[in-house]
């Protein structure tokens, strides 16, 4: 049973996110979610391909 409670929520983050988006953006939520997903996908694609390194190596400000 314990194991199930750990394993089961595989779909929950998406649902939680949708609910959160709905709360924040109301009827605009699907559009914002679609735009955010596109922005994030583009970022992931670049990083997977190019493996950029941070510049500067050490943060200027924390």
């Amino acid at each position: 049973n314990n194991r199930r409670t750990v394993k089961a929520p595989t779909e929950r983050p998406g649902e939680l996110r949708q609910a959160e988006m709905k709360r924040l953006y109301g009827d605009g939520a699907p559009k914002i979610l679609a735009m955010e997903t596109a922005v994030q996908l583009s970022f992931d694609k670049h990083c997977d391909r190019k493996h950029p390194k941070y510049w500067p190596v050490i943060p200027l400000k924390f």
């Binding site: 670049h46 190019k50 950029p52 390194k53 941070y54 510049w55 400000k61 924390f62």
Partner: peptide, 22 residues
């Protein structure tokens, strides 16, 4: 921010990540 052709004071880095906090 993922950027390319970053011109830094010490040269060009082809690909880089800039931290928003910086």
């Amino acid at each position: 921010f993922y950027v390319s052709q970053l011109q830094t004071p010490i040269g060009i880095q082809a690909e880089a990540l800039l931290r928003c906090s910086d």
